[in-house]
Structure formats: C-alpha cells, structure tokens
Design a binder for these strands. Structure first.
Lengths: 187, 187
DNA sequence: ACCTGAACACCGTTCAAGT
DNA sequence: ACCTGAACACCGTTCAAGT
C-alpha cells in the first residue's frame, strides 16, 4: 500500500490525460472528439490510452469524477442557504458543464458504465436535497417528491435554452409552491 | 401537382422504409442500428437509403413525423380533461416511444436537423398546454411558467425510471400547486 | 509497467455506373 | 427516377511486440 514513485507517476499521468480529455470534450463535444485526437494532444500513440482506461466511456467517467470533485469543494459553503438559492447555485455550477451533462444523458442507454455513474450521482444529489428539506422542517412524506421535482426542474432548465427571466419565474414558483403547502417553512 | 403513379410509389416506399427503420430503432436503439441493417431488412443496397434521405438523421426525422402523426390522431378526445389527466395521457403515449425520445435528446447537439425538429415539437406542445391552461381559467401571466414546468416534469419522468406511486405523487403535487395559486380553477 | 505499429471490424456516406 | 458495387475516410478497440 506504500505510495511508491510508480503510483505517483501514474496518478500524475492520469490527471494530465483527464484534463486534456476534459478540455477537448468541452470544446468539441464527446462524440466529436476521437481517441486519436486526445492521443495527438498528449503526444502518445492512440492505443496508449487503453492502458489507462478500458474504453472511451471509462475515460469519460474519469473526467466526470474529476469535475465532480472540483465542484464538491465549493459545496460546504452552501449549507444554510434557502432551497431556491441552492438550486440556482447548482444550476450555475452545472451550466459550466452543460456539454458534459448532455453527454452523460446521451450515453445512458449505450454505456452501462455511464449509466452506473449517472444513477449514483442522482442518488447522491437527491439524498442531499432530501436532507436539506428535512432540515428546513418540510414534512417527511413530501420530501422525496419535492426533491425529485427539484431535480427534474434543474435538468429541464439545463437541457433547454431559457432566459434569466424564465429561470427566475420557475424557481420562484417552485419555492412558493413547496413552501405554501406546509405553512411557510423557510424553503 | 397531379398525383401520378410515381408519387404514389415513392410514398409507399418511404412508408415501408420508415416502418422498418422505426421497428429496428425501437428494438435496438438508433445508434445500434446501422444503415446496412435497415437496408438488409428491406432487401436493398445500403446506399439506396440515401436516395430517399440525405442522412441517417433525416431518416430519423421521417420516423419521428410518422410516429407523431399517429399520436395526433388520438389527441382530439383529450380536449376537455383536467391537466393532470392530460399529462398522464401524454406520459403513457410518450412512454411507448421512450427509446425515440431519448434518441432525439441524445442527438440534439450533434444534428441540426434533429435539433430543429425537437424545438418545433416543443413549441407545439407548450403552446397547446398554454392554451389548455388559459381555457381552464388560469391567470395569463402564469400560464407560460406552468406549461414549462409541466413539460420538464414529463421529460423528467420519461428519462428516469420511477414507480407508479412516484409518478402519481408528482402529478398530484403539481396539479394541486398549479390550482391552489389561483383559487381552485379546475386544473 | 508502460508504450507502440499495425491491423480488425465496423461506421455513415459518396460517386460513377447501370437500368 | 431509381438502384447498385465499390470505394472513402473515418471510428473505437485489440494484439503481438518492444523496452
């Protein structure tokens, strides 16, 4: 288990690999970026990538986890804020990875490994939102439904182009509806 | 403009082509179905398909329009029903084309022709829902927001596996929230 | 352990040629 | 107008071989 030189080197190389891949995926999209292209940017042979990742989708998972861990570092600061603000923050955060979000959804039915990552991510987000709702005093039986609705609204806003005005109206309406039904908890 | 024999033949052949393609797309998915495979099922050479459609995506558009026109024939009967029932009907209808819905969303960023079809379809659905809401007496300024939310919820339910219980809770909550805010209109 | 050259089995699409 | 055979330029991935 000792971290020897080799492990460090491998980690560093994977990091460089994922950063390059992430850049190309975001610039051109996942489908439009070939393994050849990534390899060329790294100055290695195309099949070298397969020593580190079993497939292009596994490389995508590596990229996703890297992006996720970066986002999670900013999470603690969001603890006490109202739900509407938290959704707005999540939206801003995800919007910077719009391309990646769309890619994940587009490969759900084609790639079991992406499906697994997606489902796990969703479960994490939903349970986090449910916890936040409970903490805000929302009736326990309603929390799951509200969390799912919140998720669907965020995904809808991400997938479809919209104005700041539209976004505001939707989040406002949701927060009001969620709050109203339980006598004005601070949602 | 006269409908001569040639036109009829072409229509019939396109119909057969699109039905075969639709079947394979639904059985195996769009990506997993090659032009070769479709051609083989029709007993023609692969490039024959390109005489009728400029690309695989244009063939998909043909299939989509065919499915849509079938669905639209059942639409008139839905006129007077409450919004919740209409959403449930739309969900059942779309769920039979889950694969196609997912395919359309997955190709939005790759294919301008699919993007155009999708946007047009969305506009049609939203304006239909807005009309239904206005007819039900919903305040005009709220209609657009509610229609968008309804759309997002339908898409969310379609994209993510869920129980009948979850679906019921979400539709119930939405109808209640939409109705409450304007003194109990028959939404 | 790490990387390569060469190949494999596809893919959507094009083009010149036939009828 | 309609259809074909043959090819093109890719693609993700594999494998045997090198160090």
């Amino acid at each position: 288990m000792a971290k020897n030189k080799r492990d460090v080197d491998a980690k560093v190389k994977k990091a460089a690999l994922e950063e390059t891949a992430a850049r190309l995926f975001m610039e051109q999209g996942f489908e439009a970026t070939s393994m050849q292209q990534i390899a060329r940017a790294l100055d290695v042979a195309p099949n070298t990538l397969y020593w580190y990742y079993a497939s292009k989708d596994e490389l995508l998972v590596g990229v996703l986890n890297r992006l996720l861990s970066q986002t999670l570092q900013h999470l603690p600061a969001m603890g006490g804020l109202p739900l509407k603000a938290q959704m707005a923050w999540l939206l801003d955060e995800l919007e910077q990875s719009r391309e990646m979000v769309a890619t994940v959804h587009s490969r759900l039915d084609q790639s079991p490994v992406i499906r697994a990552w997606h489902d796990q991510f969703h479960q994490f987000v939903e349970s986090t939102v449910i916890f936040a709702l409970k903490t805000a005093g929302v009736e326990a039986s309603r929390c799951a439904t509200l969390a799912t609705v919140a998720t669907f609204l965020v995904e809808g806003l991400l997938a479809h182009p919209h104005s700041a005005h539209q976004r505001h109206d939707i989040l406002e309406w949701f927060a009001a509806s969620a709050g109203d039904q339980l006598g004005g908890a601070a949602v």
